[in-house]
Design a protein around this nucleic acid. Structure first.
Lengths: 311, 311
DNA sequence: GTAAAGTGTGGGACGCGTTTCAGGTCAAGA
DNA sequence: TCTTGACCTGAAACGCGTCCCACACTTTAC
């Protein structure tokens, strides 16, 4: 591999001048520029990206920690992040966590080692306080409401739309309202937000026989369908449109009368089923998160979510 | 930022010894090791990842060029890639192309500059011959059948399942079989494979009034539905389950008699509609592509796809 | 006419870890 | 006793650009 010093020697100019040519800077006479460019061509010279990063002190890369790679929540978020990153000249590195705090810590350590310029946690299993402490290593962004913890965050304001959604359910006269949560509300901010809204609006916390914990995809919806059917739910509020569809299918295939249904994420499936859903605008959240990670914006960015009622 | 030389000076040992401690190498006496570790602790030392990459000559990063970030084909592929990468100690950087050959070239240039150790094209708009030529820059992998071009490739053997699918359609007695293609078959290998199978099995190339070009997602399916309804198709073979669902919805909402339908990708939606589909096993393709990009495997890896018939 | 400003180049330090090679010590085996 | 080899440590080169500073010369500007 030929390097910048080879070019300098071969062309008869200094490394500084070659560097100037390389970076299209001023103060190089046209003749010299041409000559050096020719030599670079001849020696098939390519500047080394890693050396550049080392020298410049940044990588123009943002790490994105995500629990699941192929899941609509993460996919949409990543799309927003990637899109904004591209516009800003950053690249995005995917860091799978599988909800493992150990892995999350490993990625924070990488941030500390300057492997990337910033780190976005699309979800996190570590305590938020620990993540906040890691800001000493570099820009860290979370995608959930950090509460009183001081840390850059981009997230949807779920409460407003959750309240709206439950009010809608209540008004429709449903009595036994089932709730599907992605994970235990003790560890999942999303789940606890749903429980809280349920409790506030309906007037009581969801009963155990109306609460399903651990739903990520369609197949979970089918399993949950059996659970809710057995427990006589007349409404099921799922944590995703595909999941709601799973519930729907269970009832239908077993020729049971369908309960009321509501999903989240505003995917194709809820439109198909004609059920209500909530659009959390994760794409916008992703864009905001990227802006925070690069330092283009600071503080906390709350994005409104929309309750989409369908009769 | 304190560096390895600071540690050497402060501890009274040489840089080499500190490096040995850092990398848990043999030939450091326990006492010295302890002492140096203590100094590193005190000075809050963290090795610089970029300097390491520069020195070691690799980044342990694989670039993944993809046309669309939030699309089931790419998502599934990326999941397979990421999963395998994690196991092998590699990281994955997402490189959005939006089907733009210019961007693809830019990423090849980055490979040349050693920004990553390998590059996977999940799809490509550049001519394959040009990509093959770029192998001089480093490992480049494509995810489509490269034909006679010599380049590492991981892809699904679509022909077998496409043939099976069309044979199934033919046997069912359909006469006006509509075909939905993601892009122009002149530029898309996937599209041309579909056209070829259609032609072989049905006995004639798909007519213009039965061919829809440019379908990526559900919404395109709805548009195509109008097209096929107007042209009297009695069957529609879509290039995705969600797309097929779009077609289905168009017919249903306009109270038209449903045509036969078939999708691809074996997603939730085809199961819901009870229509046939093809599972291309993109997850496995992704894993194979990663193995090729790291050099763990070589050559071309063809993965069988499955035709899933549903009455 | 002379100071100020702009232009063109080079030297060399800096960012930072890895690795090769040399030199020295000490104990086990012949 | 001599050899061999494992063990410990250091000097310095290497991977490769970037950037500040100095120096020299040429234009403007007043």
């Amino acid at each position: 591999m030929t390097n910048i010093r080879d070019i300098a020697r071969e062309s008869g100019y200094s490394v500084s001048t070659v560097s100037r040519v390389l970076n299209h800077k001023k103060y190089v006479s046209p003749a010299v520029r041409d000559h050096i460019e020719q030599v670079m061509q001849q020696l098939n010279y390519v500047p080394n990206a890693v050396a550049r990063d080392l020298s410049s002190g940044h990588t123009k890369t943002i790490g994105v920690a995500l629990a699941m790679v192929a899941h609509p929540y993460y996919t949409t978020l990543v799309k927003g992040i990637t899109e904004a990153a591209f516009e800003e000249g950053y690249q995005v590195t995917l860091l799978p966590t599988d909800y493992d705090a150990k892995l999350e810590r490993r990625y924070l350590e990488q941030l500390r080692q300057h492997a990337f310029d910033g780190l976005i946690f699309t979800s996190h299993s570590m305590p938020i306080s620990e993540i906040a402490a890691a800001q000493a290593f570099g820009p860290v962004v979370v995608c959930q409401d950090p509460g009183s913890v001081t840390i850059p965050a981009a997230f949807t304001d779920r409460q407003a739309s959750y309240h709206e959604a439950f009010a809608w359910i209540k008004q429709a006269g449903y009595q036994r309202i089932g709730l599907m949560l992605p994970r235990d509300p003790k560890v999942s901010a999303t789940a606890s937000a749903m429980v809280q809204a349920y409790t506030n609006v309906i007037g009581a916390a969801p009963a155990a026989d109306l609460t399903w914990i651990g739903s990520m995809a369609y197949a979970d919806g089918r399993k949950a369908g059996a659970f809710f059917a057995a427990n006589g739910a007349d409404f099921v509020f799922a944590n995703g449109d595909d999941i709601a569809m799973g519930v729907h299918d269970y009832y239908q295939q077993n020729h049971l009368p369908l309960p009321g249904l509501m999903g989240q994420e505003n995917q194709v499936s809820s439109a198909l089923l004609g059920i209500s859903t909530i659009d959390h605008h994760f794409h916008a959240v992703g864009r905001a998160a990227l802006a925070l990670a690069t330092g283009a914006k600071t503080g906390q960015i709350k994005i409104a979510s929309d309750f989409i009622a369908r009769p």
